[in-house]
Design a protein around this nucleic acid. Structure first.
Lengths: 149, 149
DNA sequence: CAGCATCCAAACAGATACTG
DNA sequence: CAGTATCTGTTTGGATGCTG
């Protein structure tokens, strides 16, 4: 079930690594790879893609209800960015009250597959990470008060 | 070579999606999954993991040289966060001048495998995304001046 | 060399009020 | 309903100067 170190050691992975790092360095700071990686950087993007992937089609407020804690503004900003990148389609109906449907494009769904793997990894290793954090924090006595609670 | 929609439609993916979203919603804003996803959010973390994955072991300034554009402060902050999460080890030698070696832990390497796939996806689809961006920007005439150059 | 501390500018993100 | 506009607090991140 788990990804093993054996996988990591395959040529495949090393080759991909070279390819990616090559691309990153090639164009400097503004290269496509970086701007694309920045898309998943954003926690709201990730969650939006997850929910659209699960539901298929969602209206603005349906999505807003599912992504707990997101503000209207951030949802708007996030969806625009995803639309701009061709990951999400925005279908506007000329109705009153207005209706706007969002769904993943093929490209968006292919990305979904990738970040699902990431989310699954996070899910499977969250215990390990939380323990590591606890260990780290408890051996560092220089932190005061409520800062790190 | 590409990930197809067929993959997306498998039960596997849907099941993982449910599992992840379940975990996310279960604990609210501060759940582990979110804080873990926040780690790759950070572009510097991703690049650090890539470079450590490629080189094996690197000293502070070696890493700094490879990650173009990173400031000393951000590298320090990033490495501490990675160390705290148990993804990177920090080996200090009592020498003068000081020497500190960084390398990925097993956990870090297993994460590397995942984000390599993501980087590879970005690499393979960057053209599509860049074109989508161009399309989107050219059909939106309401932007003035040099803002979007 | 490998960093920590401080200052400051810029980007990010929430709350609020208003609109087609 | 689905936004836009604005205002503001918070976070981020670079630059600089100093230390073991």
């Amino acid at each position: 079930m788990d990804i093993t170190i054996a996988d990591y050691q395959t040529d495949q992975v090393e080759k991909k690594l070279q390819k990616i790092l090559g691309n990153v360095e090639a164009v400097g700071g503004s290269c496509p790879i970086r701007t694309i990686l920045a898309r998943f950087s954003d926690k709201w993007s990730t969650l939006s893609i997850f929910h659209l992937g699960q539901a298929g089609t969602l209206r603005f407020n349906e999505l807003k209800k599912r992504i707990d804690g997101i503000s209207q503004r951030m949802l708007t900003v996030t969806l625009r960015a995803l639309e701009r990148d061709g990951l999400v389609t925005r279908q506007i109906y000329a109705e009153i009250p207005p209706r706007v449907d969002y769904q993943l494009t093929d490209l968006g769904r292919s990305l979904l597959v990738q970040i699902i793997e990431l989310g699954d990894w996070a899910s499977n290793h969250s215990n390990q990470i939380m323990e590591a954090r606890k260990r780290f924090d408890s051996r560092e006595p220089k932190v005061v008060g409520s800062e790190l609670v």
